[in-house]
Simulated assay, not measured.
Amino acid sequence: MTAQDRGLAALGLDGVPALQPLTYPGLPVTVPSLLTGAELLPLRARRGGLGAWSLDGSHRPHPVLDDVLDGLGQPPVAGRLPVIAVGSNASPGQLAHKLARLGVPGAVPMVPVRLRGIGVGHSAHIGRAGYVAAAPYTAPEARGTLVVSWLDPAQLSAVDATELPNYRRVALPGAAYGMVLPTGERLDAAQVYVSVRGLLADPATGLPRPGGGDQAVLLDRLLDASPRLRELLGPDAATWVRRAAVDPELRARGTLLFAEEGWVLPWTELHASADLGPAPG
């Protein structure tokens, strides 16, 4: 496979939810990969740590990831921090866009990791692009796979700038959340962005409204549930994101309405708990 075949556009992974809000959260990577700007190269997982994984789709036969990063003038895996994505940061198109906007080199290992104890809901605020973004919460029964990106200090600073002030980055112990790499090796720790705005509640259950679905469906349901929100941002999802993306005051008023409608759960922490159960095998 040639490098051209691995372009984000050719793979259908070049979508940017920040520019097309109703596509949020975008398409995530589904196999271990190295994002290099506008390309996504597959990684071949093997025991010995991420830095020793080999890279396919290169002119050299199966070079080691740390050697590839060094050749790009980028820090090795040991100089990076693993960060769990629960929303659009799992999308290579979105992540590449965030880094490119700030002129930060976009060489990022992105790996689906099995874990437990993390549910995905919606942050109780309207983001800069107009969409209602995802947010994690402690869910002892949850088992699943989330994308983890290994960010170097410059990349981490750039992504932080896109998340603040609505999110804060927190550390999670790998053992408590059962983080397992595709090789079966355990991840010692990772970080994740937690909403400081709380979570949107499902009025029917009083629990967090499930995340990960169609953004247009979510916004239309919120509009249907609140005449005041419909008057402010309606009549439909397309109008919502078009108006909210250009008007900070509208975003602030809409966010306030979430609370006034009684939809906000003040869940802004993730907790390591002994009752999460056994880690994935």
Results as ranks from 00 to 15, higher is better:
A45R: 04
A237N: 13
P173G: 15
A158N: 06
L199G: 06
P227A: 12
V111D: 09
L222W: 11
L151F: 13
T30D: 02
A9C: 00
L257G: 10
L95C: 01
V86R: 08
M1Y: 05
A201Y: 06
G212I: 07
A225K: 08
D275V: 09
L146M: 13
R128T: 07
D5F: 06
G234L: 14
V64I: 13
A100M: 11
E185I: 01
A238M: 12
G178K: 14
R6T: 07
G51R: 03
A90C: 05
P136V: 14
V120L: 11
A3D: 08
A244T: 12
L219M: 14
N166K: 03
A252C: 04
G37D: 06
S123W: 10
T36M: 12
D160T: 04
V180Y: 05
A189V: 06
G262L: 10
Q4R: 01
L8D: 01
W240R: 13
S88T: 05
A189P: 00
A90K: 05
H97T: 08
L102T: 03
G281C: 08
A85Y: 04
E260W: 03
V29P: 00
A124H: 11
A129T: 08
G26E: 05
S33Q: 03
V170H: 13
R228C: 02
V108W: 04
T162I: 01
V120T: 14
D214N: 15
D66K: 04
G281W: 09
P61G: 07
T205I: 07
A190S: 15
L250C: 02
N166E: 12
P82V: 14
L164E: 07
L187T: 09
V196E: 08
Q215N: 07
K98N: 01
G79F: 06
R230W: 06
M179C: 14
E39K: 09
Q4G: 00
A9W: 01
G184A: 11
R44F: 04
G26V: 13
V192K: 11
D214T: 15
A96K: 00
S226A: 06
S195R: 14
A245Q: 10
L27P: 00
A189Y: 12
D214V: 15
G127E: 15
A154Y: 05
G37I: 02
P17Q: 12
P28W: 07
